[in-house]
Each structure stands twice: as C-alpha cells, then as structure tokens.
Simulated assay, not measured.
Amino acid sequence: MSGADRGGAKRFLVDNGLTLCFLALTLAALVGQAVSGLALYNDDQVAQGARTVSMADYLTSSSFAVDVAENWQSEYLQFFLYIFVTVWLIQRGSPESKEPGKQGTESDEEQHVGGHAGPGAPRWARVGGLRGGLYARSLGLVMGVVFLLSWLTQSVAGWAAYNSEQLAEREDTVGWLQYLGAPEFWNRTLQNWQSEFLAVASMAVLSIYLRQRGSPESKPVGSPHRATGVEG
C-alpha cells in the first residue's frame, strides 16, 4: 500500500471515527448477545427435554430476531420522537434544546434553503415544493420508517416465538392481530419504551447543570446553567 493510500485510509478512519466506533460496538454487542442468548436458549431446551440447537439455528430463530428487533425499534422511536418534538418544545438551559422563542420550523433564511442556500448546500435544499419539503424532514422521516419496520419485524418474530411456546406447552396458537393485543407483546414493547423516554428526559435535564469538557453534547464548562442551545 502506497503512502497516499495509507494516508487516505487513516483520514477515512479519523473522519468517520464516531460512526465506526459505534458500529464496532454494535457488532460486538450482537456477538455477545448471540453467544449468551444461545446458551440461555439451550438451557431452556434441556430443561424442557428438547434438543439443543446450533448457533446457525439460533441466529435464524424467531427468539433471536424478536430480541434484536424490540431493542432496535425502541431506539429508533426515541430518535424519531426527539427529532420532531424538539422542533416545538424547549428545555431552558439544555444544550439539547433550541433557545426559547425559536420554537417551530424557522424561516428559510435561518435554515439556509431556497434562495438563501449557500454554495455548498445540498441540491434539494435549493428547491422548493415536494422535494424540498421532504428533504427538510428527511432525517425524522427515515428514523420513523426504520422504527416502523423494526416494530413490524418485532411483532412478526414475537408472534412466531409466542406460538412456538404455545405449541411446546400444548396450548392453542394465536393469529398475528391477536398477538398484537396480547399482554406479552405490550409488556416486551413498553418496558423498552419507558427506558428510552427516561434516558432522553435525563439527558435534557442533567445537561443543564452538569458538564463534559470537550463534548458537543455538553455546554462549555463555564457556561451559565440558563444558557440554552449552546454546545461545547
């Protein structure tokens, strides 16, 4: 590899370090979940007098799919709601909030769209109409779509896992719509949602009074507690 190639690879790693770090952590967590989940699943199988399964079988099972999907949908719901809610609601003193009085979608001049777009602006930021409107809300919309797809995956995988348990216990299976109204589905769903909502509320409030030097998620260390929308 030439010096230019090595320099380009290093620059790529530096410029994308945050994303690459969390993708690596995600992969590591998935591997850990697969290993521990397989062990737990096989323990249950042995306790029930059933045969154990291989890693490949477990990774393609509804049990593994529902555990992954229910976590993903709650995370994307958190971001989807936070993106849209922070357009209109504020938290005085939080760097996660806009300043008081700036609620709403703001003017074209403030958002640098249409005739106010600069030379480096994305192409769709320069146009109006449907394309411009979609691009102006694309982040929240994509988060919402991923949430819905994850939620749908969770519901289907959970339904399959639930019916497998019903069959193992010689109980009647249920339809998908019946499962959506079952306590088991909503218990799994809501226990994830409440933790995500609490985490967002905690971050919004704690960042008023606490600091993390050098982090863009925190105000500068010496900023007043009432300073709002100020990031380090």
Rank of each mutant, 00 (worst) to 15 (best):
G8L: 15
F64D: 00
G49S: 06
M55D: 06
L30R: 07
E106C: 08
D43R: 05
L190Q: 06
A9W: 08
Q154T: 02
L20N: 05
S150Q: 15
L190C: 13
L180H: 01
T228N: 07
L210K: 13
Y162T: 00
T26I: 10
V127A: 08
L134S: 02
S2H: 11
Y179A: 03
G7I: 07
W124G: 02
R92G: 04
A28V: 04
G93I: 09
K10L: 10
E106H: 01
D172E: 08
A50C: 12
H225W: 08
A9C: 04
V127S: 06
L40R: 14
E75G: 05
L148Y: 05
S195Q: 13
W124L: 09
R51Q: 11
I208P: 08
L210R: 10
E106G: 01
Y209W: 09
D43H: 08
V68Y: 00
F197M: 12
L167P: 07
D5F: 15
V200L: 03
G222Y: 05
F22T: 12
Q154I: 03
L40V: 15
A182N: 15
P183V: 12
R137W: 09
Q154F: 06
G8Y: 09
N192M: 10
D57T: 12
D172F: 03
L38V: 05
P95F: 05
H116R: 06
G93T: 03
S63L: 12
L152S: 15
E110F: 09
Q33M: 12
G8F: 12
V205E: 02
G128M: 05
P95M: 02
P95I: 01
S107W: 10
D67E: 10
L130Y: 15
S207K: 07
W193K: 00
G229L: 11
L25C: 15
R211N: 01
A65H: 13
G232N: 06
Y76D: 00
A29N: 06
S63M: 07
A157H: 06
Q166P: 00
G7S: 14
Q73R: 05
R170Y: 10
G232Q: 07
A204C: 11
E70N: 13
G7Y: 15
T26F: 14
F22G: 04
A160H: 03
N187P: 00
H225C: 12
S107E: 04
S36M: 05
A161G: 05
L59I: 02
A168K: 04
P95E: 00
G175N: 10
A161F: 07
G232R: 03
G118D: 04
S150C: 13
R211F: 00
Q166S: 04
L59R: 00
A56E: 01
A136M: 11
Q166G: 03
E184Y: 09
